[in-house]
Amino acid sequence: MLRTIAARVLLLVAMVWTAGTVNFIMPRLSDRDPIAERLTQIASQGGGSLAGIQDMVKSYQERFGLDRSLWTQYVDYLGSIARLDFGYSIANYPTRVADQIAYALPWTIGLLGTATIIAFVCGTLLGALAAWPRAPRFFRNVLPLFMVLSAIPFYLVGLVLVYFLAFRLNWFPSGGGSELTAIAGFSWAYAGDVLYHSLLPAFSIVIASIGFWALGMRGMMVSVQGEDYMMFADAKGLRPRRIFFAYGMRNAILPQVTALALSLGRIITGSVLVEMVFAYPGIGTLLFESIKLSDYFTIYGCVLVLVLATGLSMIVVDLLYPLLDPRAGITHA
């Protein structure tokens, strides 16, 4: 068991290093200069003169260490990954990257994590029922609808929802994580406000991804029903409910769980588009903004969070899987 964990952690380190290196090189292949752009932007907004801006750029580059050799920067960068410290955001100096991420991450995890889990539970159950001959016909008939919905990208579903429910009917806010005037804190009013703002984006993710989970589960459930143990479960006179859950779903769900872990790792990446559509203050929006401004350090931070999330969720699945499927345990032991 310990050896398994050690091997997985080593793999994670290798993964982070590889992703980090790619991540370091990619933004630097662009010929844009983030500091010059930022200062020009400030100058033009403030109406200040552009004179002397070259000197400012130079001094800022020194401060951010961008004047040193690429190799030195790379070594520094690896060190900062190890410490999980990415210094200051170039675009929002003097905000620290870590603070930006710490602010954005709960929004993303709260919205997409919850929506993904809701979609998983509903979709898996729907798929299982659609494959179950003794279940009402309703479940079989409703499945194609969700499959059509899952073929449409969820940001399109989101746009349609925003247009009708928020813009036209004004039932829901059209964007944001909470009212601008709301005071953040642990109060019922604030929690309700956050929930109210999350309903529309969450709903668009859920209805767009239920079909995916349902389809996978239906396929597995159909093949599980051909297994001898299902026939024997019937012959043993078990209650239909037990056969459905403990013998059917329990076996059919195994590949679904793997897919869930992978998609939980990916929600942060997948969040970019949803968060853009709904102007949600999560990590997707943060990443998008920092790419627009070539904010190296924030990009590093965001991408590293993505890599860590994917890697960690894979480790969790690897370690949990033997508990779900006793057959998986023997190869590691």
Binding site: D228, M231, A235, G237
Partner: peptide, 24 residues
């Protein structure tokens, strides 16, 4: 009939392959 299965009529399958639930 469900209650009668196993209690009254029991079935013994060709169980060497996979008549048992693999996760229990």
């Amino acid at each position: 009939m469900r209650a009668a299965r196993l209690r009254v009529v029991s079935y013994i399958p060709q169980g060497a392959m996979n008549s048992l639930n693999p996760v229990k």
